[in-house]
Design a protein around this nucleic acid. Structure first.
Lengths: 342, 342
DNA sequence: CTGTTAGCGCTTTCAT
DNA sequence: ATGAAAGCGCTAACAG
């Protein structure tokens, strides 16, 4: 059994409260006693038991990160990875730990984070945009917010309460299409994550309204055993049969499959096909061959902000809701060319 | 304030011990009282506070995953990602949560996991291979093992005690070179992570001994702002000036940079240069252009095994040390060709 | 400045 | 089968 505060107190010849005082610097303590306590702490390699401390302070120094997603898709997306990096960085700085709360089944009815909250396992909660609108989780989350529990929601929010960090997915996807449109493309293929299905509809509508003579082809990519062949089929079909001259994709994950398949199919970039992607890591597109035009979504920054907001909320109480909208930045590189209308 | 066991007891008209009994099924309870308690639990949406429970049971249902690494490099490596996926999957199944313990500064003197152990924040610890041999962390880890604390070490171990899961890095890297050697290559360039520097030396020695007429060029890649140019320089130099006919790399992360640069430099794969990689995700190499020969290291499987071993250790006590060595599998694809000795 | 004590929420004897 | 009570390790209020 590890040493407890009692052992330390005994060895230092003081009471447990004195030990507690020097541990937490919560009250002035005689110099010599302080030294004795410190010696005893050293000697036992003493660390206060978090259950005891937590029981009285009711905090765990842990923060939950909720992800309603298969872990596979999560850990394959640069977006989440960068988000997590950002979160972890500031959590670490403020001496909090990150607990991942993963919901993989029953995305509609699951709300596993509620248990963590009720069990006091975590002091605050960061929700990742993968939560399904209208799901049980969304409801539970709203309850939490209403109850004043420290939370931050990353991604598109459908309610105005609560802290929110967001990079307008719909905006930059729309911008992407507009980029193509402006240089003459009229038939565009979009590779989209299954999880973004909901959001892309709004984009599609707006496109139909504002660029009536542009035809948008959507390919919703679900997990697949052979993405190589799947992409090849899609690209071949859309480029050769349906006359697409531009491909957009919402994550760098797909870009190598797209580039590689284009090369294999004898489709030149950008001469035959223009490509724009989204990058969640700086200059990611620049490291492709050829360098790919991309919208930079500062995912890591988003994670950092979310964590900072959450910690402020935890430690100082939520004064006002924070709504932080991040800007994306478009980098022109070598993957888009003007399409002469023919 | 959330409901406590007292509130539940009061509403159900029983004592708190009875509530505890029905919660934990730790003793038979009258049917009607059980029903009443369950109703009250429902009503309050009651979840036992983990501090209270933990204080008496001294367990947290949390497991620490220690990573002595910058988080960036961690979350950019498929190896770690797959490892984490595997760990998370089985942890989830056994109702444990994963806490990431990240050591980014002072890799030689840091041992942050010790605090988590002493504070009882975690019930067990998984150490990731990135721990530096001879470091403070290594020492602390050995102490933990000696003290019977539940741990699993993933990666090469320098001591025989404790649970260990391992895919012989040195073996498969040696095999990789041998593959090149067998088909006639005599000048091989290896792209290596900085973190693997220690291990590759042994490989190098063995190569020098067993394949005396093979010349091995090592490029240790540290984090770099412009990997694209860095790789281009390296490849250009080693292929054109130093006559390398084969490139090996220890992680898929680099493969697109290598392939892309080769294409840009007019180096054909596999006609001019043969390539072998390591893949930590099944068929990852098959999705490259061209498909890349690779050694499959079952990182996810390793994570699963590690977690399973750890949980067994936690819940049943460590009977004997588990030493599990995973086999790698070599997939031949289209990136290696015979080199006619000239 | 410091020791004594109550009490955080829970599980687990110990009686009954 | 069940309630009373002890006690897990700690902090904070209180008394001195």
């Amino acid at each position: 059994m590890r040493a407890s505060i009692k052992d330390v107190a005994k060895r230092a010849g003081v009471s447990i409260s004195t030990v507690s005082r020097v541990m937490n610097k919560s009250a002035p303590v005689d110099k010599e006693k302080t030294a004795a306590v410190k010696e005893a702490i050293q000697h036992y390699n003493y660390q206060p038991n978090q259950f005891g401390r937590g029981l009285v302070k009711q905090n765990s120094q842990m923060v939950g990160v909720y992800i309603a997603h298969t872990f596979d898709s999560l850990f394959d997306s640069t977006y989440y990875l960068e988000l997590l990096k950002g979160i972890q960085t500031v959590l670490d700085h403020y001496n909090y730990s990150m607990v991942i709360i993963n919901e993989k089944d029953n995305l509609k009815t699951g709300n596993r984070f509620v248990d963590y909250v009720n069990q006091k396992k975590i002091d605050g909660l960061i929700i990742t945009s993968s939560i399904i609108p209208g799901s049980e989780a969304e409801n539970s989350y709203n309850d939490l917010v209403k109850g004043g529990y420290p939370t931050v929601y990353i991604g598109k929010r459908f309610h105005k309460e609560g802290n929110n960090v967001y990079a307008q997915y719909e905006d930059y996807m729309y911008q992407m299409i507009k980029e193509f449109y402006m240089v003459g493309h009229r038939r565009v293929l979009l590779f989209i994550y299954e999880g973004h299905k909901e959001y892309i509809q709004a984009v599609h509508k707006k496109v139909q309204k504002n660029m009536p003579n542009l035809k948008l082809f959507l390919h919703i990519q679900s997990s697949n055993d052979n993405p190589r062949e799947e992409f090849k089929k899609q690209i071949h079909n859309h480029v050769y049969k349906l006359g697409c001259t531009a491909i957009g994709c919402s994550d760098m994950d797909y870009i190598h499959l797209i580039i590689g398949n284009c090369i294999e199919l004898g489709i030149r970039i950008p001469e035959d096909i223009s490509i724009i992607s989204v990058e969640h890591k700086k200059e990611e597109g620049a490291n492709c061959f050829p360098p790919i035009n991309a919208f930079y979504v500062p995912a890591q920054e988003m994670g950092k902000i979310a964590a900072k907001v959450l910690i402020t909320d935890i430690e100082e109480g939520n004064k006002a809701n924070v709504f932080k909208e991040l800007e994306t930045k478009y980098s022109q590189r070598e993957s888009v060319t003007i399409k002469k209308n023919g």
